[in-house]
């Protein structure tokens, strides 16, 4: 990934849903998952820093590079479900 501005976004689990839709994953034309929708009222929306179009590079320090779509979605879902943390740290890239 060329020079991008990346940001570390902390999403606090302040509602019972995360509420994001992602597209892509390894072996697709969108090799890293990109946020395509953010659901109002979900924790992602409430945090206010995640935006449609951002590409998710890491989740809690776990790189999504090379992860197929289902696996990437599972990693994000597990990060939201786990009781070990009250937040999720997303490393996102802002394209363009």
């Amino acid at each position: 990934i060329s020079a991008l501005n990346t940001a570390l976004v902390r999403v606090v689990k302040n509602s019972n849903t995360l509420g994001i839709a992602i597209e892509g994953g390894a072996n697709t034309r969108q090799p890293l998952p990109r946020i395509v929708t953010i659901q109002k009222g979900g924790s992602a929306h409430n945090c206010g820093q995640l935006k449609v179009g951002q590409v998710i590079l890491e989740v809690n320090g776990i790189s999504l590079r090379g992860q197929e779509h289902e696996e990437a979605a599972r990693i994000i879902a597990e990060a939201f479900k786990t009781k070990e943390k009250d937040h999720i740290d997303f490393l996102v890239a802002e394209l363009g």
Binding site: I22, E23, T28, T37, H69, E70, A73, A77, F80
Partner: peptide, 14 residues
């Protein structure tokens, strides 16, 4: 010419 599939999977993560 190897062409990447154009479809892209989309999933909701609730």
């Amino acid at each position: 010419l190897f062409v990447e599939p154009q479809w892209v999977p989309v999933s909701w993560v609730y």
